[in-house]
Each structure stands twice: as structure tokens, then as C-alpha cells.
Design a binder for these strands. Structure first.
Lengths: 141, 141
DNA sequence: TCTAAACCCGATAAATTTAGTCGGATATAG
DNA sequence: CTATATCCGACTAAATTTATCGGGTTTAGA
């Protein structure tokens, strides 16, 4: 089953929530998770990952929290999801398209043609789609 | 991490292998797996699933095996992968787009916009792409 | 200076999914 | 009759995802 994990979903929601903060004021993990059932400690891990990758910045101590480190127009969904999910569609032919010999299957590179199509499609679908676009679409709805 | 599982990969390779069988002669599981490291018992499960869903048909007993139950031009990759993988991108907003109330996040439907884009893109990328197309592309390469 | 609010972070545990294994039943060509 | 194959449910193992925990550090404000 191919699906987006909780890290992707929680993470995207977190980033979106931060984008809605008045004047980019920091929000605490608790505020980000709000009334959701997402465990704070788990959300924390996701946010630390986002910080390490330059998407958010944090201020420690009382009144601290997280805020966006980039402008929404500079956050595209493909890169963001790659950070959150680890990697998207890591299916590669082990033989670089050279099918003279094979490991997994004599027709391994046939499958690769399909994975490439999918990967490319995903990249096109959200590689240019920014957080700002999402905000706009969300408000339009 | 979003990825295609072995069921998707092994299954696609199996179907492709069957398409290469001279005169659609049945191939045994052993022949399908060929010199690969795929466990026969595991491949068997995949093939049984494909049979139950009308993609292949089997003849039992000596000299038996599996063969394609449809013409390659009638097998599209999106449906095939859905059968093999169980489901592709089963991420749905729990509130049908009505965000007045929320469960997972106040902004749950924002994420949905992104998942929809991805799902749609995948559907477009391989929903019209048939096994015959794959065979052609494979031979072209 | 003290305290409460917050982030930091590595380690571990629980839950779920994926991947693989097994054993015996049934069918068929030769 | 026998060897070759599919059929199929149940079970096990491995990997990944989803948390949980505990102690540490930082900072605003009293």
C-alpha cells in the first residue's frame, strides 16, 4: 500500500499552521498540535527535523516556539515531503538501465520505466507547488 | 518513506514476463521468477491475487502455469498497481472537505489539497499507460 | 535568582505493515 | 501412478512506522 505517513501529514499541517501565525510569531508545539490527537513528543521530532533542514526556526525558553524560516513562496511541496517522509519513491533499477545482466528480474528495467513515470509525475505535480499556492488554494475553497 | 513495495515490483515483473511468453504459453512460477532471488512461495501469493482479480489465468497440474488473461493493451498500470499494492495513496480528509470542525488538525483539508494533486498526477501518469505501452517502450530503449 | 515554560535529543518500546515461510490439499500430463 | 504444479490458509520474521520516555538546556518574567 502506497501512502503518505503521519510524518508527512502532521508535518505539512504543522508548516501550514505556522504560516497562519500572525506576524510569523512563534507557536509552541502545543499550539501547533492544538486539539489534535497528535502526540506532542512525536510532533516535536518532526519539528526538529524541519528545523535541521532549514524550514523552521525555533526560540527556546518561555514564550518560545517555532516559526517559519522561509517565506511560503519559497517552500515547495516536493522538497518538503522529501524531508518529512525521508524519500519519495526510492525505486531504482540496480543496473542503471543496462539490462544485459539482471538481479531481481530479467525484466527489471521494464518496471523502472513505470516508476520513472510515477516519480516524474509526482515531481511535476508538487515540485512547483509552493506553500503559498496551498494557502491561496485553501482560502479559495 | 513513500515507496513501491516488493509486491508491486515483483508483480509487475511477473506480468511483464508473462507478456513475453511465446504464444501466451503458461509459465510456471519457477519460470516467472527465473534466476531471481524472489521466493517462489511469495511470488505464488502475488500470482494468486492477480488471478483472483482477472489479470492472469492458471492451469493446474504438470505443464501448468500462469498466462495473461487480458491483452496487454487492456492492462493499465494504475489499476494493476492498485491490485498489487492494495491501494495507492489512501489519504483522505475525514470531513469530506468540510472544515468547520476538525479531528486531526484544524488545517486538515489543506493537506488534502496536496494529496489530491499527487493522487491525480499518479492517475494521469499511469492510468492510461498500458502493459502494451510498456512493452513498446521497453523494446524501444 | 528562582521558576515555569519551552525546546533539545538520544534511546527505547509498541504497533503496524511488509515480506517471507510452511504444510498439506487438489489437479493433470504422461 | 508419479512427478509437476497450482491452491490456500495460517503462521513467522523482519522492517518500518509511530510513538514514548527521561533527563538536559535555554529563556522570560516575577
Amino acid at each position: 500500500m502506497i501512502r503518505v505517513s503521519t510524518k508527512g501529514r502532521y508535518g505539512l499541517n504543522a508548516v501550514f499552521a505556522l504560516s497562519q501565525s500572525e506576524g510569523n510569531q512563534p507557536l509552541s508545539i502545543k499550539q501547533i498540535a492544538d486539539g489534535t490527537s497528535v502526540p506532542l513528543n512525536y510532533m516535536e521530532q518532526i519539528l526538529i527535523n524541519l528545523r535541521k533542514n532549514g524550514y523552521v526556526e525555533s526560540t527556546r525558553g518561555a514564550k518560545g516556539g517555532y516559526s517559519l524560516a522561509k517565506e511560503p513562496k519559497d517552500i515547495n511541496m516536493y522538497d518538503l515531503l522529501n524531508i518529512l517522509e525521508g524519500e519519495i519513491f526510492p525505486v531504482h533499477c540496480k543496473h542503471g538501465g543496462n539490462c544485459a545482466n539482471h538481479g531481481e528480474s530479467p525484466h527489471c528495467c521494464a518496471g523502472e520505466i513505470v516508476w520513472d513515470r510515477i516519480n516524474k509525475a509526482v515531481k511535476e505535480a508538487v515540485g512547483d507547488y509552493t506553500l503559498q499556492d496551498l494557502i491561496d488554494d485553501f482560502n479559495k475553497k
